[in-house]
């Protein structure tokens, strides 16, 4: 057993456990915390795969940015009665069966897709240099689109979340 396998096993089990915890914890604050661990685990996985830049971005943007947003959202709306709202067991059952069936199918597919790819190629993954060049040459269009998209999101989110008068308040 190589070091890779050991590390992967450890990280993957951590990810799997925390993902399950996200789903099953009753309190939304705890779910957010477990999601944080999941995301950190995924970024570790990227480091393990040799994609340092993606891993770093995952840490900075996801863990540092998105998760903070989510936690803020939780806190802003966290009143006691909403923390633990739950659905009926039957719905749990149906969703669980469907999800497991899908998982089985996807694992089958994974085994088929992974055939013959038992070891990674010798050459390392391209680092941030080739990525940067790629973004400004071959992938310029998606890059620009995503930039404009971000601008739109910025404006849209600011517009949507701005303080508004409550309905029934004094208008005009």
């Amino acid at each position: 057993m190589s070091l890779d396998v050991v590390l992967f096993t450890a990280i993957a089990s951590a990810i799997a456990f925390s993902a399950l915890a996200v789903v099953f914890s009753r309190n939304i604050v705890r779910s957010a915390l477990w999601l944080l661990f999941t995301l950190i685990g995924v970024s570790l996985l990227y480091f393990l795969l040799g994609a340092e830049f993606v891993g770093a971005t995952q840490l900075i943007v996801y863990v540092g940015g998105t998760m903070v947003l989510v936690v803020f959202g939780v806190m802003l709306t966290a009143q006691q009665q909403f923390l633990k709202i739950r659905i009926r067991p039957q719905e749990w059952l149906v969703a669980g069966i469907l999800a497991s069936a899908l998982f089985v199918l996807l694992v089958t597919t994974s085994f088929h897709l992974g055939e013959g790819k038992n070891s990674p190629p010798a050459e390392p993954m391209p680092g941030s240099g080739p990525l940067g060049v790629g973004f400004l040459t071959q992938y310029l269009l998606p890059f620009e689109i995503i930039s404009v998209h971000l601008l739109v999101v910025l404006i849209g989110a600011a517009y949507l979340a701005r303080a508004k008068r409550r309905p029934g308040g004094n208008r005009d």
Binding site: A12, L113, G114, N118
Partner: peptide
């Protein structure tokens, strides 16, 4: 050795 399948 660690293949693609575990990741998928």
């Amino acid at each position: 050795e660690l293949g693609l399948t575990p990741y998928l």
